[in-house]
Simulated scan of single mutants.
Amino acid sequence: MFVSYLIYKKSWIGFVVLLLLLTNTLLLTDSGIQIELHSILYLNGLFLLFSGVFLFVRYKKETSYYKTLKSQMNEVDEGWFERIPTPKNRFPEGETYSILKNVYEYEQTKRSENNASNQASQTDLAAWVHEMKTPLTAMKITLDAHQSNELAQRLQSNWLKVNLLLDRQLYISRLATLDTDLLPEQLEVKTLLRMEIRELSSWCHDKNIAIQLTGDLASIVHTDKKWCGFVIRQLLTNAVKYSLVGGTISIHTEQNDEQSVMVTIKDEGPGIKAHDLPRIFDRGFTGDNGRVQHGATGMGLYLARVISKKLQIQLHVSSVLDEGTSVSMIFPKNNSFDQINRSSM
Rank of each mutant, 00 (worst) to 15 (best):
T214C: 04
S260W: 05
L26Y: 13
N238E: 11
Q34N: 14
V292K: 10
R168M: 13
Y65G: 10
S31H: 13
F15Y: 11
G287K: 09
L200H: 03
W80I: 04
I99S: 03
V317Q: 04
L303V: 12
K241H: 02
E185F: 01
G247I: 04
E196W: 03
S64T: 13
Y66I: 07
K225W: 06
N256F: 02
E78R: 10
Q293H: 07
N114G: 06
A127Q: 12
I141Y: 15
F337K: 14
E258L: 07
H38M: 09
M345C: 08
F331S: 02
G284D: 09
I172L: 15
P92W: 00
H294K: 14
S39T: 03
L69A: 10
T63M: 15
S243I: 01
K9R: 10
S319D: 05
A145T: 04
T134L: 06
Y104S: 02
T248A: 08
R283E: 15
I99F: 04
M262S: 11
L160S: 11
T297C: 07
E131A: 15
Q169R: 09
F281V: 12
T142Y: 14
V57G: 08
G45Q: 07
S157L: 00
M139H: 10
E185G: 05
Y171R: 13
Q314Y: 07
D216K: 13
L235R: 05
G14W: 05
E75T: 12
I249A: 02
E150Q: 03
N238Q: 05
V103T: 04
D179P: 10
F337E: 15
K88P: 01
N335K: 00
V162R: 06
T223S: 06
R198D: 15
D30K: 08
R111W: 03
S71I: 14
G14A: 04
F56K: 09
V306L: 10
D167P: 01
Q169P: 01
S173W: 11
K310D: 13
K110H: 01
H205V: 03
A176H: 12
Q312K: 07
K161W: 08
R194S: 06
L303Q: 15
E323G: 02
A116N: 10
L143E: 02
Q169N: 12
R279Y: 12
K310E: 13
E113G: 01
D276Y: 00
R194F: 03
L19C: 05
M262R: 15
S112G: 09
F56C: 07
A304M: 08
N24L: 15
Y66N: 09
V317P: 01
S343A: 09
L48M: 12
